[in-house]
């Protein structure tokens, strides 16, 4: 194993790791937004919105994320959507992550005993007041861990955007293989950096989860 080589190329990989992190953060933000909207749609009192929410979830969970990225990036221009690779990566992965987060958020909300909302309504709170003062704070605490799982998956899924040539970690590893012919070292180095990002994120999620729990 060529450790010297790994140390030499390491700074370039680090730079690529920042791109992966930026991609992850933007994807996570878009995913959370879409997940919130998706959950609101799936829990709506209007059948049309429930249908749209369900269709969104089944399409994006029921097809490979890579195909979704290809449709957006390569197929997009055909229907008038011009995006650069990074934009397509964020939007494609964000919408995909949002489908998973929709189910996470909805799951947490429906797991709150309906007696909670009833107790609020009985006191005179409106539907919305009971939701945001009673149901949501409880559901929010339950969501932290499963959203952490979604985040973990989403970070790993950012590797897919190498296929549309976003210069992030995986793409960078592939590029260095072209000049060094050392796939083992290059992919290992990328793997180590992914692991550090994911480990740190996992610790952050665990910390947040502890912080919001009621003792």
């Amino acid at each position: 194993m060529d450790i010297d080589l790994m140390l030499r190329v390491y700074p370039f990989f680090l730079e690529a790791a920042w791109t992966t992190i930026l991609l992850s953060v933007l994807t996570a933000l878009l995913g959370l937004t879409m997940g919130t909207l998706g959950a609101a749609a799936r829990l709506s009192r209007f059948a049309v919105l429930r249908f749209i929410g369900a269709a969104y979830v089944s399409f994006f969970r029921g097809t490979p994320a890579l195909i979704q990225l290809f449709i957006l990036y390569f197929g997009g221009p055909q229907i008038g959507i011009q995006l650069d690779a990074f934009e397509a990566g964020v939007i494609g992965l964000g919408i995909n992550a949002g489908a998973y987060m929709t189910e996470t958020i909805r799951g947490a909300i429906i797991s709150i005993d309906k007696g909670q909302k009833e107790a609020g309504r009985t006191l005179g709170l409106s539907n919305w007041q009971s939701f945001y003062k009673i149901t949501l704070p409880q559901a929010g605490r339950l969501m932290v861990r499963p959203l952490g799982v979604n985040l973990n998956m989403l970070i790993k899924a950012t590797a897919l955007v190498a296929a549309i040539s976003v210069v992030e970690l995986t793409y960078t590893a592939q590029r260095y293989i072209g000049s060094t012919y050392k796939p083992f070292e290059m992919f290992l180095l990328a793997g180590i950096l992914y692991m550090i990002i994911i480990y740190a994120t996992g610790r952050g999620v665990a910390w947040l989860d502890r912080k919001v729990q009621i003792t």
Binding site: D113, G115, Q116, R121, G124, P137, Q138, I214
Partner: peptide, 20 residues
């Protein structure tokens, strides 16, 4: 109904206290 309910207290078998 929200106004009416302010005047009617209700106590449930399973308490339904807000745990948070």
């Amino acid at each position: 109904i929200n106004e009416m309910r302010q005047d009617v207290g209700m106590v449930f078998q399973h308490f339904n206290l807000f745990p948070h």
